[in-house]
């Protein structure tokens, strides 16, 4: 939280109980009259609070606390502790600046946590979303394509598209997105989009990513590796632009994630733009216990 406070992020606290729990993973209960849920996501909880109580958004917001979600796997906890921040603005021109600001902040997180090494991956949800919208894929088919790419399984993408007229174009696009994963060079990574039939359609997104990478590259701290992951489609229903994911080599779980989500506030009646990230403290604490060798600050001095 100190890192976020130093960067001008003001801590806000949202209620632990949320109304209108549409989220399937929420832990829901009745209070006698209404269906409620324990807070399943801080970003959504804060957005609901801010859109109701603020005429203009506070530009920098941070949070820390527990969220509760049904576990998908037996080893996943229901209660998870998260620390995160949201950068909210009212004009579209601030998007690039805000995205770079958040990525810079996230780049500072591994050293703050004492991690010896980390990988920050940058992707963009728009790289799959826009071609699918342009081809007017039916929702069920678009969902199946997204699930297949989430698994990085081009053979499943082909199955999902079947004999749709756009199959060959979308397959070529998916291959381009996945081929980038073979390159660890961020600068040349974007060039694979030239192979995509949608390279013109995606020129703004590409330019946005290029500028972000260009701004970040000189600032990469020691021990951090910056990677481009064009096939990142996790949270495609939520994210609308660049996405960020933080990993530590040797860890089995993602340590932080975030990105641009310009669709949330308009749904709540506010024409605001937003991006943010959240650091998952629960897996970090597990990691500190099981792999102390990955942390500088957890090494024991021997006399």
């Amino acid at each position: 939280m100190g890192l976020l406070a130093d960067a001008g992020y003001q801590e806000l606290r949202s209620s632990l109980v949320m109304r209108e729990p549409h989220e399937q993973a929420a832990l829901r209960f009745f209070d006698g009259d209404h269906l409620l849920a324990l807070r399943w996501d801080y970003t959504t909880a804060l957005a609901r609070m801010l859109s109701k109580r603020f005429a203009e958004p506070p530009p920098r917001v941070s949070y820390a606390g527990a969220v509760f979600r049904r576990a998908n796997q037996p080893w996943e906890p229901v209660e998870r502790f998260e620390v995160g921040c949201e950068r909210i603005h009212t004009d579209e021109v601030s998007c690039e600046e805000a995205d770079v600001e958040l990525a810079r902040l996230l780049m500072a997180v591994p050293a703050t946590l004492g991690l010896r090494a980390a990988i920050l991956q940058i992707g963009s949800a728009a790289l799959l979303r826009r071609p699918m919208e342009a081809e007017a894929l039916p929702k069920a088919m678009a969902d199946a394509v997204t699930r297949a790419l989430l698994r990085r399984a081009p053979h499943r993408v082909q199955e999902a598209l079947g004999d749709h007229p756009a199959t060959s174009r979308l397959l070529a696009h998916v291959e381009a997105l996945l081929s980038e994963a073979e390159s660890s060079d961020c600068a040349s990574g974007l060039q694979v989009l030239d192979r995509s039939p949608y390279s013109q359609l995606l020129k703004d997104e590409r330019e946005h990513l290029r500028k972000t990478l260009e701004a970040l590259s000189p600032l990469i701290p020691e021990g951090l590796e910056l990677r481009l992951d064009l096939a990142d489609v996790q949270g495609l229903d939520f994210y609308t632009g660049p996405t960020l994911r933080l990993y530590a080599p040797g860890a089995q779980q993602e340590l932080a994630a975030g990105g641009r989500y310009d669709g949330l506030y308009p749904q709540l009646g506010k024409p605001w733009f937003a991006a943010g990230f959240c650091v998952r403290l629960s897996p970090l604490l597990d990691l500190a216990e099981t792999r102390p060798d990955l942390f500088i600050s957890f090494e024991m001095e021997t006399p």
Binding site: A111, R116, A117, A118, I119, E222, G223, E225, A248, P249, G250, R291, D293, L294, I296
Partner: peptide, 10 residues
Amino acid sequence: MNQSGRSLGK
């Protein structure tokens, strides 16, 4: 700490 993650977790 610019040793890459590749050198860890061998």
